[in-house]
Amino acid sequence: MKHPYSSLSDQELIIKCRKDDVKAQEMLYKRFYAYAMGISLRYCINRDDALETVNDAFIKLFKTIKTFENERLIKPWFRQIVVNSAIDSRRKNLKHSTVLDIEYAEEKPANNQIISKINAQDILKLLDELPEIHRLIFNLYEIDGYSHEEISDILDIPSSSSRVYLSRAKDKLRKLVNNHFYLNYERAI
């Protein structure tokens, strides 16, 4: 059964949400749920944490939607809310986590052709193998476009540390991609 508000645009849904229309909120939730989960899963260890983060983000969204300007696009604004919620939920874990040096096999030359074979679940597995702080900084800098200064302010770390962690994250991702996918790619060939 088709949702009665499924034909409405994002802006029209926002206008209805401002009037505390539950059906409009439900429609907006379901429309942006996958988008929010895609962002949240990159930051959170497991799916339950990711869903908790997504719901927190939607709570903030509906609270501040009345101040949202109609001319703006909702997606970038909501993206920021989700990222901030994910950081808040992961922040407490950063205090208790220790950075472990993962030893990998000898580094093989990176093969760019492998990358296109990697699907979303593989990416999440790769990110899960990174230490918490590395994963956060990689997501913030490489995927969500935060600068090192912004990251240092958010995570309360020096910007030099942010650069170091990012470099280590990228090194490890290269190694992980090669270790997990290079052999399979060679076998396929």
Partner: peptide, 28 residues
């Protein structure tokens, strides 16, 4: 390699599909 990996991750999750929206709404 890093650039391609980054772009691939962005593109993959920009069109990420998740069928659990109804369950998510209930929990919300």
């Amino acid at each position: 390699f890093d650039k391609e990996l980054r772009d691939h991750i962005k593109d993959t999750f920009d069109v990420y599909h998740d069928q659990m929206a109804d369950d998510g709404w209930k929990k919300y």
